[in-house]
Design a protein around this nucleic acid. Structure first.
Lengths: 216, 216
DNA sequence: AAAAAATGACTGACCAGTCAGTTATTTCTT
DNA sequence: AAGAAATAACTGACTGGTCAGTCATTTTTT
């Protein structure tokens, strides 16, 4: 009767011990706490004690879940970024709209996703600490940036095929189109108190500029 | 005969002691060393010993020139950013070219200035450490970003007046136009090894997109 | 009662900042 | 001009505090 069968069985019939659920919940709490602390002060200045306190546990407990500060940082980035990929793909269900309309929609959803509080903090952390965490930079590039460029490129291809957009030859068109959103996200974290970004208006300017720039 | 006249006098006739010259040179060397070390590892992880070694002096000497690690960091940002302002203004001598041509030129010069090795490192540091150094973020915003937006806006006004550009209403047009360059600078530092930016081509794409986007 | 989870005092490495002492440069004296 | 005295620049061992990571003990769960 070990393995907690009985009250440990969940709807799917698989035995999931109360222990494991709690462990998972605590791990998530620690990741949340880590995000807060790392966002506030950066990797090097963050204290494991503060992460522990933020999560309502003692420092020793943090080390039951993560081997080291670096591992905690990495786990945080991975955990918090995983949903972004799913969202991007989900929001991208191929529709039969025009490329113009799809690009407009895509940029709106990009802003919504990037300007999410957690996400832009992580983006800033990647830029700040990326050179010290090469595999995290690679992970972020592969899972988010590379994928995101692919989506934009596919819309552009459609638009070129349909005659809505002109064919542009140079490199980096997708990055160029996404740049406005990236800058908005960072700006909001670093300079917003000095010169606020009015996001809706900024977004519309961006969409307007890009769509006109691409028009055939 | 005090004040070191004679061999202490320089071409302008003003007495400049050997001491002061050397002191100024050493200060500059320390700022250079600081830039290297801070760029490599960020503010918190940088060691004053490393800065000293990089400059070829002992740690104590660093403290003869700068009161603290923070002050050194601030001095570095200020010293290294001062020339950027002058350059921007210089490169902006009002010409009688069309707004289209002026914007093209301006973007090229913006890329050239931003992608300067030192400068993009500092931009990255500001983004990474800005929230912890509010007055530095303010300094950077005022001296670089705000000013830069003004230059772009003035070209756009000319273009609207001359009928080259359409009038765009939303906020943040100047930021949007500069965004491509900002992203390029950061990309080159963090992701270039994963997906290189071919700068000339990227720049031309950007110019092309923006000019078409603005066209009346 | 046994096992698992959590604790927090502790250790050892690290590093910003100091300062008593050393070296280099300039000024004064003869 | 040559040495003596004064001043400025520099050094690096040291201190005090901090913090990642450990582990013997306590608490909670089963």
């Amino acid at each position: 009767m070990n393995q907690g069968a009985g009250k440990g069985a969940n709807v799917s019939g698989l035995p999931v011990s109360r222990r494991l659920q709690q462990k998972e919940a605590k791990r998530a709490a620690l990741v949340d706490a880590a995000l807060k602390v790392f966002s506030r002060v950066g990797f090097a200045a963050a204290k494991m004690d503060d992460v522990a306190e933020e999560a309502g546990v003692s420092k020793g407990t943090v080390y039951l879940y993560f081997d080291s500060k670096e591992r905690l940082f990495e786990a945080m980035v991975r955990d918090k970024m995983a949903p972004a990929l799913d969202e991007a793909v989900e929001s991208f269900t191929v529709s039969d709209s025009s490329a113009t309309e799809r690009l407009r929609q895509h940029l709106r959803s990009l802003y919504a996703r990037m300007l999410d509080g957690d996400r832009r903090q992580i983006m800033r952390l990647i830029m700040a600490e990326g050179p010290n965490f090469p595999h995290l930079a690679a992970f972020y590039h592969q899972r988010i940036l590379s994928h995101g460029q692919g989506l934009i490129r596919s819309i552009i291809s459609q638009g070129v095929a349909s005659g809505e957009f002109r064919k542009m030859e140079g490199h980096g068109l997708a990055r160029n189109i996404a740049a406005g959103a990236i800058v908005a996200a960072i700006w909001k974290l670093v300079f917003d108190h000095l010169q606020p970004i009015e996001l809706d208006s900024y977004l519309e300017t961006h969409v307007d500029l890009v769509l006109n720039g691409l028009r055939a």
